[in-house]
Design a protein around this nucleic acid. Sequence first.
DNA 1: CATGAATGAGCATTCATTCAT
DNA 2: CATGAATGAATGCTCATTCAT
Lengths: 193, 193, 193, 193
Amino acid sequence: MTRNKLKEAAMRLFGEKGYEGTALSEIAKEVGVKTPAIYAFFENKEDLFMTVFREAMGSYNSYIQALSGEHKELSAKDSLYQILTRQYAFYQQSREASLIVLRYVIFPPAFLKETIEEAFLESDKLLTNVIEQLIKKGIEEGDIREQPIPLLADAFLNLMDGLSMQYFYYTSKEVYERKLNHAFTMYWSSASS
Amino acid sequence: MTRNKLKEAAMRLFGEKGYEGTALSEIAKEVGVKTPAIYAFFENKEDLFMTVFREAMGSYNSYIQALSGEHKELSAKDSLYQILTRQYAFYQQSREASLIVLRYVIFPPAFLKETIEEAFLESDKLLTNVIEQLIKKGIEEGDIREQPIPLLADAFLNLMDGLSMQYFYYTSKEVYERKLNHAFTMYWSSASS
Amino acid sequence: MTRNKLKEAAMRLFGEKGYEGTALSEIAKEVGVKTPAIYAFFENKEDLFMTVFREAMGSYNSYIQALSGEHKELSAKDSLYQILTRQYAFYQQSREASLIVLRYVIFPPAFLKETIEEAFLESDKLLTNVIEQLIKKGIEEGDIREQPIPLLADAFLNLMDGLSMQYFYYTSKEVYERKLNHAFTMYWSSASS
Amino acid sequence: MTRNKLKEAAMRLFGEKGYEGTALSEIAKEVGVKTPAIYAFFENKEDLFMTVFREAMGSYNSYIQALSGEHKELSAKDSLYQILTRQYAFYQQSREASLIVLRYVIFPPAFLKETIEEAFLESDKLLTNVIEQLIKKGIEEGDIREQPIPLLADAFLNLMDGLSMQYFYYTSKEVYERKLNHAFTMYWSSASS
DNA sequence: CATGAATGAGCATTCATTCAT
DNA sequence: CATGAATGAATGCTCATTCAT
């Protein structure tokens, strides 16, 4: 119980204020426990952080993996669009997890630069794969115009990254949704045949 | 002299390791000076950071502003493409400045969340303006198909944001350039008439 | 069972790393038990230490006491020499006990300076007594030249102390045995008639 | 100034209460300074300890080295006796230094077992050398009976070690001096011809 | 008996900051 | 301008101890 509450508080605080910017005492206080209690569950600050980070990365990965199973019966357009809304939904439902993933993928603290890079590359490969499959299917079914898959995939991944950034610096829902739709409209207009 | 060296060191370290992750002593050491010397030039850590951050934001803004003047004689396509390469060039030439801008626009420390948000919004408006002008001109000259300007602009801005993120998590030059070209190719294919 | 294993582990660790240098958790870990289990057998750290120390002191004392009974039929020289070898044997068999006794007799932690001093003085008196009896007998039997008993006793006790120190800072068996024999040879040469 | 006062306080406290038993705050308090001030002069606790220990060991070594120069015109007996009184004087004048040397030569904390062993062995060699020279001279001049030098040296060194221990566990001056004289009388009686 | 959870006290250490020089 | 000395505040962490289970 306490362990979980600690993880949740840590996730939120590490995500919001960063690793160095978050004191163990803050995490403890949010859980209503004294600092040393943390050490009953985690070896040290780094361990707590890594546990939380791995968990966030994990749920990000399973959200990606979940994407691949859902599109059997959708058109390519709907599938791709759904990926964007799913990403959006993930950011909203798991704000903390996504914040922490985003933050530490771009700005890893020195002591886990490598670990994170590996984790990210795998995740990236996974996502790329899902997108490519979808595009391939779209081409086969005639929804997408015959074009090199890496071109279509890279552009779509770029679109997703752009939206990720925008999600975290535009706080307004409306603006974000407009951006999402505009970006996707343009993308689809050149992808479709 | 020392003041400038301090700013440079601070820029790099704040960019790489963050505000809380950087000790004044590190900055001083890199400049070959003892910590208290910093206080001869800056009121405190926050002041040093803000000075440096404002400067970085400033050079980012002037790079944007510079964009608007350069396109008088280029085609819309070349203009837009040039914006991407200019952004790329800026990231490469002013790696530290861009890192610090990117980091603190997405993850501002509590004490300057507001300041930064304002600064960013202005910068964003500036950039949006430049892009919109360009697009308008492109439409007028018949290079760009008649479409709502916000649609074209949002998609392009999204493209730029995506590339920003990718610049900082893909270390490889080749990968980045491929991504850039793929994203632009797709964009232009649906923008052009 | 556990109680005894705790005492053994405590004896070794307190002897090797000292009172403050030894954490209860280390002792518990060596026994394969969690720290709070210690409190089922001992009131607190101090109690555990004192129990162990008293036991060590006790076996040191009984080794001394045992000395006095063994010499009825030996010559004075053999008796005295045997005391040295017995001391040596005790250090080897009960390395932990002797380490702890030596350490805390010379460097008692403040909270048991008095207790230890008393215990030591008694032990010292005991040993002095044994030695003096032996010497007296040796003089009576003509093995030892007529000389003041305190002179002979003090010198012999000094010899023993010297060997104690040397035992713990020379790790080599050969060196120690050479030192022992040399010291005793010289002693006996001036003690004997 | 403060640096020296810190070393003095550290010497006394480390000697009396041991490394783990001494908090930096105690040392600071004795000097009338706050704990972090220590870090202006020493890297950390270990560094402070090692500095102090090396210094103590150093003055012990120079006292030994000083011994060798002083005996040119004394008889062998007086020379050897003077060594004992010099040792005694050193213990009295530099009580802290000798306590710390004695304590950590016999009971080194794990992290400097090696360093200390080396330092001690060198010191031991030095002392052995001085003693052997003296004995050789004594034999040549006919004051000491012809006997193997190692025998005479080992016995004398043993005597010194015994007195070292006794110095620290008998607080009384009279007792110590009696012990010293008794031990030396016996030694000389078998050394002299 | 033994443990998991929790804590108060304390510790070494870092850091931003001040101030006299 | 620059530094050495010093400090208050905070941090991560350890440890002896307690207590309910």
